[in-house]
C-alpha cells in the first residue's frame, strides 16, 4: 500500500500563501472541474480523458484507486491550484516505473509549488520502491522540462512529431527519467 500518513501536508509558497497537499477524494470533483476549466489549451494536450466534459471528470473522481492512480491536489482555501499524479502498474514489466504528471494553475506558477509537488512525488516513489519516475512533456513546455531537471529528472530522449494535441497538431515529446535510490543498491 502506498503510505499516505504525511497528508494533509501544509506548505507555504514563495509569496507566503499557505497551500494544503492531500490525495484527491471523490468530493473534489467540483474543485477539479474548476481547476481544469481555467487551463490554457496547451496544458491540456497530454490528457487522454476528455477533460472538457463534466461527466468524465465525475467518473474519474468516483473511480479513484490510489494503487494505480494517485492524484495529489494542492488546495488554497477551497480552490484547487495544482495537481500531481502518480500512475503505476500493479503488475507486469513496468510495475517499478511510476509515471508523473504535474499541472499548476497558471496564476500559481513560479511560486515553488511545482517543485514542491515534484518533491512529493519523489518521496512517494521512494516509499513504494519504484526504480524510475518517468515524465513525458511536450517540448514547448520548457518550464516543465526545467522544473523536472532541477529535481533530478534527466532528459533521455526527444521524439519528433510524436504526439498530437487535442486539435490534431503534432508536437515533439521530451521523455525524462528520474532514477530512484533502490536502483543504486
Amino acid at each position: 500500500m502506498i503510505p499516505l500518513e504525511r497528508y494533509p501536508k501544509e506548505i507555504s509558497l514563495r509569496d507566503d500563501a499557505r497551500v494544503v497537499l492531500r490525495p484527491m477524494i471523490p468530493e473534489d470533483a467540483d474543485g477539479l472541474w474548476s481547476f481544469l476549466r481555467q487551463l490554457p489549451e496547451i496544458d491540456k494536450a497530454h490528457f487522454h480523458e476528455d477533460v472538457d466534459r463534466r461527466e468524465e471528470v465525475d467518473r474519474w473522481a468516483k473511480s479513484l484507486d490510489y494503487e494505480a492512480v494517485l492524484p495529489i491536489l494542492a488546495i488554497r482555501g477551497d480552490r484547487v491550484v495544482g495537481t500531481v499524479t502518480l500512475y503505476r502498474n500493479k503488475t507486469g514489466w513496468k510495475q517499478r516505473i511510476g509515471i508523473v504528471r504535474i499541472l499548476i494553475a497558471p496564476d500559481h506558477r513560479h511560486l515553488g509549488l511545482g517543485t514542491a509537488m515534484i518533491r512529493e512525488i519523489r518521496h512517494l516513489g521512494e516509499k513504494v520502491a519504484l526504480n524510475y519516475l518517468l515524465a513525458e512533456v511536450i517540448e514547448e513546455q520548457q518550464a516543465a522540462v526545467r522544473a523536472l531537471e532541477r529535481m533530478g529528472f534527466e532528459k533521455t530522449g526527444v521524439y519528433r512529431n510524436f504526439v498530437n494535441d487535442r486539435k490534431g497538431h503534432l508536437h515533439n515529446l521530451v521523455v525524462l527519467l528520474h532514477p530512484m535510490s533502490g536502483l543504486e543498491k
Binding site: R119, K127, G152, M180, S181, E184
Partner: peptide, 10 residues
C-alpha cells in the same frame, strides 16, 4: 525520513 534526500546526499 526522506529517502530522496539521502540519495541526493550520496
Amino acid at each position: 525520513d526522506i529517502p530522496a534526500a539521502r540519495s541526493d546526499l550520496g
